[in-house]
Design a protein around this nucleic acid. Sequence first.
RNA 1: GCGCCUUUAGCUCAAUUGGAUAGAGUGUUAGACUACGAAUCUAAAGGUUACAGGUUCGAGUCCUGUAAGGCGCGCCA
Length: 541
Amino acid sequence: MDILDSLKLNIQNSFKELGFEVATNDIIIEHSKDPTHGDYASNCAMKFSRLFQTNPRAAAEKIIANLDMSNIEKVEIAGPGFINFYMKQDSLSKIVKEIIEKGDAFGAGAKKNKKINVEFVSANPTGLLHVGTARGAAIGDCISRILAFNGYDITKEYYINDAGMQITHLAESIYARYLQLQGLPFELPDDGYHGEDVVEIAKQLLNEKGNAILSMDEKERIAFLKEYGIKVELGRIVEHLKAFRVEFDVFSSEKAIRADNAIEKELDFLKENTYEKDNALYLKTTNYLDDKDRVIRKSDGDYTYFMPDICYHVNKMSRGFDGLIDVLGADHHGYINRMKSALMMHGYDKDVLHIELIQMVRFIKDGAEFKASKRSGDAITLHEICEEVGVDAMRYFFAMRAASAHMDFDMDLAKEQSSNNPVYYAQYAHARLCSVLETGKDISLDVSGSLLTDKSEIELLKNIAKFPKVVEDAGVTESPYKITNYIHELAECVHSFYNCCHVIDRDNLQLSGNRLALCKATKIVIKNALNLLGVSAPEHM
RNA sequence: GCGCCUUUAGCUCAAUUGGAUAGAGUGUUAGACUACGAAUCUAAAGGUUACAGGUUCGAGUCCUGUAAGGCGCGCCA
């Protein structure tokens, strides 16, 4: 059992002795920010002072009197009624052994036996991924990794909108370029895609098929070009995402979802929640969470985007997931309540679907906002920026901030690849530890940690010990930035320790053995933490 | 006009979900290698948490109002 849990239990037992039942989750133990407040602190005396019908400090006295002191050096009551704990050295240092034993698994949560589906990116395969989608890709992937480490069964899914108008526009654009390449008269559609990538596809098409496309009738041609275009575009997207260390378990196609009359069946299921108005079919989402009913079938007979998406979400639930997470751009926020409403019509709780909104990224270039548009083809692609900035820096940068925070991406700074980038700070700490361990590889490790008493060593011990709690917190709040904050804190401790404690001293092998073991344990934690972000932990830089 | 998000140090962001003196990075200033990696460390300076009320032992955090910015508000996706 880790040190925080045992403290909680200790306090809980003390309450029990006094005749009060308190849940472990209601007992909060904090890491003291200020060393004069001890190693850990609890506000339980203040929080539960009502139980005691006395003031918090007097309540604290009673709680303390019933504590088991075997791991505790001393206890103090401070301020309005905080209880500050000073731990015995060995209760802090035993974490070293535990981490080294658990290795890659240190920090992982127990199996939850819950299946969670995380859908993210899901960009239309109509062009290269641009940097705007990169934030969603990074955060979606980090959330998946964090939840998996917490013990959930995670399926990462990409939804391909291959049945809508956008794809038709893509097909028309490819055809226009195809005509152009052969010197024939052509016209780029207004709603088309004007990027260089479409020209590439047309060239490839010409190479493979020659002028065979010309002889197709329009319907056949569009169908063929849609499929052809999607295959090429999606292939590139997948390739670039892979380079960004984002890989999906499942690709779902809108076209496939629509097959087998799925929409009609769904409509039939929903029929009591629909009504016709002006020849269009409305879904009564206002009966649930929405502020407005939504059209699902237009007056021309086509379905709106919402309709197949309902089928898609129902489809996901039917595959046995306990929860769905959609990572969407913040401009889709109007979408949350209508989709939850649709799922509620199926009897699901509104909380089975959790939508993580990713706020807009503003790109700054040469000190001014840079507007990038996909259709005009002047957007900076994910692929380009990865090559310039590096995948580690990109991923860390995006993970660093809460998804809900508006964020500026300074392209010039990012491209600078200077030591300003916080990812190097963490990676450097890891590389340094590796280097020390290499230098002292002939010295046998002492995992007891009994000689670790320096202030910087104690700080480091406390920090590596709290990793499992950080993982859990980042999991329940779906917040990768909590991992980056932690990594930074940890790296700070490492560098500080490194500067004031000389690790390898051949005249004092016992102390060296203690410190090398601490280095090894810390190295494991940094690596595990970076892995949750999909950032590498290099041994040399 | 309505809805969602945001407002904290010069700039970019945190604050253990209501706790102690609001913290990091960056930028500015002053120091530190004849030892394991100076991409580092040790300090200093920088704040009326947008504003006004309210809730309580206690508010950056919760409730109300005001102001500023972003994004939505389609039989588009």
